[in-house]
Amino acid sequence: MSAEVIRSDRPMTAAQRATFQVVVDMIVPASADARKPSAAEVGVLDFIAERQPGELPAIARDMDRLDAAARERHGAAFAEIDAAARQGVVEAMRADDGTFLQNLALHTVTCYYQDDRVLTAIGLEPRAPFPKGYEVVAGDPDLLEPVRRRGSIARKA
């Protein structure tokens, strides 16, 4: 889903959105074999806006903090500095506050692992469990032989 179709993005400025897309891609980048998309491609912002709109202002503030830190350390917006520099900024901020961006990381993976391309890549049909369900092998009943041979372990009462 591209940035243009994000509907509920009013609490975020264009700069905050740019930072957001870069950060979620740091959390889950596309897989090296390109079978799995990056988090920015699966529409995390739209997902949060729809499911947890109350959290957007706090996330927007975190994006501002990242931007400010990038400008201070590297003289440019977070989205414009190179990958190593971004990594350094995020690591420094998370070293200061272990919970920084943790909530965003949880939302990111929650959205990511519901995406059709991701589910297909991990071997699942992208569908609801019901009504088709799943087959599960019954398991080998002969494995119980040793338990049977041992006999009753019930306590006399």
């Binding site: 740091m26 959390i27 889950v28 980048p29 519901q114 991701v118």
Partner: peptide, 26 residues
């Protein structure tokens, strides 16, 4: 299931951010 796996791994640090995310998830 997938979301619970990823959330638990991200919360307890066993599934990291970045390129290693995918291998750790799998």
């Amino acid at each position: 299931p997938p979301v619970a796996t990823a959330r638990a791994g991200v919360a307890n640090g066993t599934i990291p951010w970045g390129q290693d995310h995918h291998a750790a998830f799998e």
